[in-house]
């Protein structure tokens, strides 16, 4: 809607649109990067995402917790790579597909790469649409790593708390998976 070209006075519709836009502007809006994992859809705050890379050769780290695939060289920095499937308690996948990616997240200086099945899109939603306090059952290693869920038109997106995720001490989650 280019106001410069407008020759007619603003119509009712225009005014309403502008008002809605203003409303949206005033409420806090979250931008999330959503991705697919084991048939479900998850997301993380875009502010924590540094970059998204294709899978690279990972150097295995003996005696690391089971959900750590290993480390990679990220332009001179050592980046631990976390297998999100394993971390969340899903059975690991055996085949590597073209769509798999490593999402590099940065939480207060702590860097890590999260391997996911496929990266979806960036979603913009008002913060208030995130529903908290859901019970996901004990089957998965989720604990309080989930910040909440978002109901979109046709699907459910689970929002992960990166800070909690990266602050999990290796010793707590240690399973003899080396």
């Amino acid at each position: 809607m280019d106001l410069m070209e407008r020759k007619n006075p603003l119509s009712e519709l225009d005014i309403r649109n502008m008002q809605e836009g203003l409303e949206e502007f005033e409420t806090e809006v979250l931008q999330l990067v959503s991705f697919k994992l084991a048939g479900e859809e998850y997301a993380v705050d875009v502010m924590t995402v540094q970059e998204i890379n294709r899978l690279a050769d990972v150097t295995r780290v003996p005696k690391a917790p089971g959900f750590v695939d290993g480390v990679v060289n990220l332009r001179g920095k050592i980046l631990p790579v976390i297998n999100l499937r394993r971390f969340l308690g899903f059975p690991p996948t055996t085949e590597i597909t073209e769509e798999m990616r490593t999402i590099v997240v940065n939480a207060e200086g702590v860097l890590a790469g999260l391997t996911v099945d496929a990266v979806n899109q960036v979603i913009r939603i008002p913060a208030k649409r995130v529903e908290k306090n859901q019970d996901f059952g004990s089957a998965r290693n989720l604990g309080d790593v989930i910040q909440g869920v978002v109901h979109l038109e046709d699907r459910l997106v689970i929002l992960l708390d990166i800070f909690r995720l990266l602050n999990t001490k290796s010793s707590e989650k240690e399973r003899p998976g080396f």
């Binding site: 150097t59 003996p62 990266l166 290796s170």
Partner: peptide
Amino acid sequence: IKSMGPFLSGIRGMAGATITGDGKVVL
């Protein structure tokens, strides 16, 4: 010697990592 970062620094037996001439990480 490059630090493995706070996430992995507690692992016994590994002092750190380095990046070799071919870009690979070696512990």
